[in-house]
Design a protein around this nucleic acid. Structure first.
Lengths: 187, 187
DNA sequence: ACATATCTATACCATCCTGTATATTTTTTG
DNA sequence: CAAAAAATATACAGGATGGTATAGATATGT
């Protein structure tokens, strides 16, 4: 992938996160990225395509980062599950954290027929399915249920951390997760 | 308040919810409400003011509805706390449910300097404070912590229910809430 | 019936937005 | 160095948007 294309993707992701997707025009994106509209439209056939690629890259980066962190930490499934929220906290506090893009995207494009909305929903579901697998490996009977609960906590905490920074959302989400995981493991 | 003004507020709230705020033009609002732009701008000096009033009304309606339901149900604080998620479920399934507006609004207007964003953050915090009061009355020591956790679950569930309808988010949020409340009450 | 306030109808302006046309310059590659 | 590819500069079309101007219609209360 061309350097410029990467730069555009990164700048767009940043602007979408700080100003919102609909409120960010392509003129702003190319200005910040230090290029022109012609080049942008040579790499992305439309703004919608650009948005979709930003979402895809963001989700991929996050999933890769998380699963690598988890497998580096331990081979034992229950250890992984227990360490999950520590890594989520690390992710939120990492310098170039740009939110969970699909959360905002689905809010800005609420119609189910919309391609951006559908991709967001898929990513949200994929993340939950990943959590479900973690829980299953750890021997949780109702791993589907637990994964849903954990994803609610995480998505809620992301949202809250964005709305009221420094509210300690992650910290309390972590405590809640511990209680839920303990409960799910013993039954 | 004039009937037309109410109608405009209601239609705007509905359109904001189904199509998004930024994607809904004032032309569309007046067309659906069966009136004209002149009338709209006589009642609301700008689109931003309209958005703010929609948010205020939505939040007020919800808070009134919930606190009334809770006090009608029982006078005992612990009973109220335990019944909370049942009413949340009822709210989500009610015919004219239009989401928790402040969640989406804060996503569409992410800048902290923005008036809409600030109101959203205030409402989110007000809701959490209300939950904290419920928990405190029920004798929960760390009522601030529990209220934060419950609000994460609720906001996460609202978001999820909007993204993947019929995912059973509320049902599992309710189970999680029960576990967290039990844990908080016994310690 | 008269005066006042509210609502409608319609046209319009200025601005912003996505996307394209055209021509020129820079970079890469053989 | 020459040819091809990629990037720039700039201007502009076409449409949507928020908001206003003007003038007429309808309703309300006295």
């Amino acid at each position: 992938m061309s350097l410029l294309k990467q730069k555009i993707l990164h700048v767009a992701s940043d602007l979408f996160h700080t100003r919102g997707i609909n409120s960010t025009g392509v003129d702003t994106i190319v200005a910040v990225a230090g290029t022109t509209k012609m080049t942008l439209y040579k790499h992305f056939t439309s703004k919608e395509i650009l948005i979709l690629e930003v979402l895809r890259k963001g989700h991929q980066d996050f999933q890769l980062w998380l699963s690598e962190k988890l497998s580096n930490h331990s081979k034992k499934p229950t250890e992984k599950l227990r360490k999950l929220f520590d890594f989520m906290e690390e992710w939120v506090n990492s310098p170039d954290y740009q939110g969970m893009a699909f959360l905002k995207a689905s809010a800005e494009f609420p119609e189910e027929s919309n391609a951006i909305h559908r991709l967001s929903a898929e990513q949200s579901e994929a993340f939950r399915a990943y959590l479900s697998l973690l829980a299953k490996d750890a021997g949780v009977a109702d791993h589907e249920g637990l994964s849903l609960q954990l994803s609610l906590l995480i998505e809620g905490a992301m949202q809250a951390e964005h709305m009221r920074r420094g509210s300690g959302s992650i910290k309390y989400a972590k405590k809640a997760a511990k209680i839920l995981i303990d409960d799910a493991l013993k039954s």
